[in-house]
Write a protein that binds this DNA or RNA. Structure first.
Lengths: 334, 334
DNA sequence: TTGTAGGCGTTATCAT
DNA sequence: ATGATAACGCCTACAA
């Protein structure tokens, strides 16, 4: 591989001049510029990004940690981040945290050890103290999917309360009075907020909140199945079911159908997240759009703006969910 | 950030000694070792991976290019790669090729510019000439999902012909005689091979191959829908449908149901790939397991073995698909 | 076992 | 506008 030195030699200029034409950050005469360019082409010169990093103290790479790589939720988030960063010629290094505290911390350290210019993370298990400390360390960190007051400038989040509200309202406006709710893990904030939204919708429609109608799920299809089973076993007269994510909705629907309910006639179902397969399940799932791609894009923009001085970018930190109406909700049957 | 020099100073040894204890590649007295370790801890020293890379000519990072980030197919592939490489403390840098020739080449160049120690790629649009040339360049490349004779040592692939065979056989053994086939794009090798397997199964069951029974799809659910529509419009008496991937199977099933076919009673369907949502669609999809996670793991192992001298790893380059029986295939109705 | 010194390929600060 | 030259933080012969 040719080095900058060889280029300077062939071009008959100093190595400093070569560096200047590469970085376009100083005046170089047209003659010299041409000589350098020719020499570069002749030698098929490619600068060493490693050497550049060492000298400039910038690696042009940002670390990304998500819970897992498969699954369209993180897929879309990564896609937003990658495409944005790629356009800006920044490399993205991925790591997974698997939703476990130890592995999340480990993953973050791994990224830090790599001299990333910034980190974008989506954590699930780590606590706020840790995040606050992390944000005060030397490497810039941006966090997707959480809101912590002390470090709010680093957070990008969805208005989950609104999402929960919209989901439940979608069945209430169809006349349903007995609606079951399968929530996410009760220790997760997004899960709590979605449930709060659910309750707000209920009270807005003058329906009393009843603990029996909410089942604590796990964000997996098994949680949906178990929740549905529980409601049926307890003979709750629900005509509508709101699930805190699409996986659980799918699990619940499968269980319901296996037990001879006609969907959506006998049971209306609403999901949350609008993952890809929501369109594939039957009936097509009415759900809440979670703009993860956009949130990923925005996280990338935050690092571009704050770390790489792309000052013209405008940042938005709270995203709004919207209702996607498909075919899994029917009006109440009389 | 503390440097190795400061550590050496505090420890009262030379910087070479510090380097030695870090890399454990030379004898250092216990006393010195302890002094160094203490100094490191006291200074909270973290080696600069950039400087290490420059000096050692190893970046410990491998580039990964896939078509897209969302979707469980690539998700699982990435997961296999990431987890394997992560255990070996190698960083993975991701890029997307979007299935377009120009963008795939661009992505590969982007990765090369980053001084990766090796590349793992899954391409769809680039031609064999390019791949051969790429394999002869200075950076080691491993290719998932293709088989090219000239560079077979670099390839990891699924036996797609066998997969196609197994898929079709799954309905033939249930007595079906009229089976439609929705293929992938005809210019893609995997698509061609799956179709070949389909034909082999047919001939093994003494069924004449008929062009009218195969619809050229696109690997998207729209292709499945269009294929099903075409078969129905032409009034082909098919009782079973084999699709070259799960997306198309899903699209076809939706269309079939919208046109009053009972599944699987009126139409048996088989997919290919066993992506996550295959379990969510109704009836649960019988399909072909595509061991992408394992293939990703193996690709990672190949770079570990060939680039990082993990000599004990055993490599396997061709993977075998298997049939996953669920509920979308029923015996022929008499 | 330990230390010295040169080199890795750039960037950036001086002079000129 | 251009050219020396010193960083950048580490590895690694080579010497001691």
């Amino acid at each position: 591989m040719a080095t900058i030195y060889q280029v300077s030699e062939l071009a008959g200029v100093s190595l400093a001049t070569v560096s200047r034409v590469m970085n376009k950050n100083a005046k170089v005469s047209e003659k010299s510029t041409k000589k350098v360019l020719d020499a570069m082409a002749a030698l098929n010169y490619r600068p060493s990004s490693i050497a550049q990093s060492l000298a400039s103290n910038r690696t042009n790479s940002v670390g990304l940690m998500v819970t897992g790589l498969s699954g369209s939720f993180f897929g879309q988030m990564m896609a937003g981040i990658e495409s944005t960063l790629r356009k800006a010629k920044k490399h993205v290094i991925i790591t997974t945290g698997h939703g476990e505290e130890a592995r999340e911390k480990e993953g973050i350290e791994f990224l830090q050890s790599r001299d990333c210019d910034a980190l974008i993370i989506h954590v699930e298990a780590v606590d706020n103290e840790y995040l606050i400390e992390l944000c005060n360390s030397d490497i810039p960190v941006y966090i997707i999917g959480c809101y912590v007051e002390e470090i709010k400038d680093h957070c990008i989040a969805l208005d989950n309360e609104l999402g929960g509200y919209l989901a439940t309202k979608a069945v209430l406006v169809q006349g349903h009075k007995n609606v079951g709710y399968i929530s996410g893990p009760s220790n997760k904030l997004d899960s709590q907020h979605r449930l709060q939204g659910h309750r707000r919708a209920l009270s807005e429609f003058n329906i009393n909140y009843n603990d029996d109608y909410v089942y604590p799920g796990n964000y997996l299809d098994t949680g949906g199945r178990d929740g549905m089973r529980s409601f049926m076993k307890n003979k709750l007269p629900i005509t509508a079911l709101v699930c805190a994510n699409d996986e659980m909705a799918s699990g619940a629907m499968t269980y319901a159908r296996e037990h001879n309910l006609m969907l959506p006639h006998d049971l209306s179902v609403v999901g949350f997240d609008n993952v890809i397969f929501a369109r594939h399940i039957h009936p097509k799932l009415t759900t809440i759009e979670n703009p993860v791609y956009e949130m990923g894009t925005m996280a990338a923009n935050m690092v571009l703006k704050n770390v790489y001085q792309h000052t013209d970018l405008v940042i938005e930190q709270e995203f709004k969910p919207t209702l996607i109406v498909r075919q899994s909700v029917a009006p109440i049957q009389n």
